[in-house]
Simulated scan of single mutants.
Amino acid sequence: MANVTNATGATFDEQVLGADGAVIVDFWAPWCGPCRQVSPVLDQIADEHPGVKVVKVNVDEEMDLAMQYQVTSIPAIKLFRDGEVRKEVVGAKPKGALLKDFEGLLD
């Protein structure tokens, strides 16, 4: 899990918007069962794609970020490139489905 970090409102701009390459942001909460299911899948994707960074945002602690990025259901997974959201996925999906959703955006 070399490329997996947690973000707060104070660190989000640097960790996500200013990052080089693809950044997968996982908006989650500790009480969310599907969030706990998809978290290790995102960790695997980060391990298998060295240029990809995974940033986790706890929506209970970072409500302002969740509102700013219009998170209404979790897990909400947003793939950023060059500081912009390029793909959004809501709900837990298996690794193959996520990779298909992110096709062409991870390199």
Rank of each mutant, 00 (worst) to 15 (best):
G51F: 05
D43R: 02
G83S: 09
A10I: 06
F27A: 08
I74E: 06
H49L: 05
V57K: 11
I74F: 03
R36N: 08
M1P: 13
V16W: 01
L99M: 10
G96F: 04
N6Q: 13
G21C: 13
R36G: 10
Q68V: 05
A46L: 07
Q15Y: 07
G33P: 00
V57M: 13
S73N: 12
K53M: 07
N6F: 07
I74D: 10
A66C: 11
V90I: 15
V52G: 01
A76M: 05
I45N: 08
L106I: 11
E48D: 15
A2R: 13
D107R: 03
E84V: 09
D26Y: 04
G83D: 02
P30W: 12
A19V: 03
G9K: 01
P40K: 09
N58M: 11
G104K: 01
D43V: 13
D20A: 15
A92S: 14
V41W: 01
V90S: 02
A97Y: 00
T8D: 07
L79I: 10
A7M: 11
D82P: 00
V55E: 11
A19S: 11
G21Y: 09
L98S: 04
W31H: 05
V90H: 01
V38W: 03
M1D: 12
V71D: 03
V90G: 01
K56I: 15
P40G: 12
A2E: 14
N6H: 13
I77Q: 02
T72A: 08
D13I: 08
V89Y: 00
C32N: 09
D101T: 03
I74S: 06
A76Y: 01
I45D: 10
A19I: 12
E14N: 09
K95E: 14
P34S: 10
M67T: 15
V89R: 01
P34K: 12
D43N: 07
F102S: 11
V4S: 12
F27S: 05
E84Y: 04
E61R: 03
D64F: 00
V54A: 01
G21M: 07
G96R: 12
T8Y: 02
E62P: 10
G33D: 06
M1T: 15
R36F: 04
P94R: 02
D20K: 13
G91L: 02
L65P: 13
L106V: 12
V57C: 13
D82V: 02
A66V: 12
A19P: 01
C32Y: 10
E84D: 11
D64P: 06
F102P: 05
T5W: 04
N58A: 10
D26W: 04
P94E: 09
L79E: 02
H49K: 07
D64G: 07
T72F: 09
Q37E: 14
Q37P: 00
D60H: 11
S39L: 05
V41K: 06
E48G: 08
V25C: 06
K93A: 14
F12T: 10
D13V: 14
P75N: 05
E48F: 00
A22Q: 05
E103L: 01
I77M: 11
W31A: 09
D26E: 11
K100P: 00
V16P: 00
K93C: 03
Q37R: 12
Q70A: 15
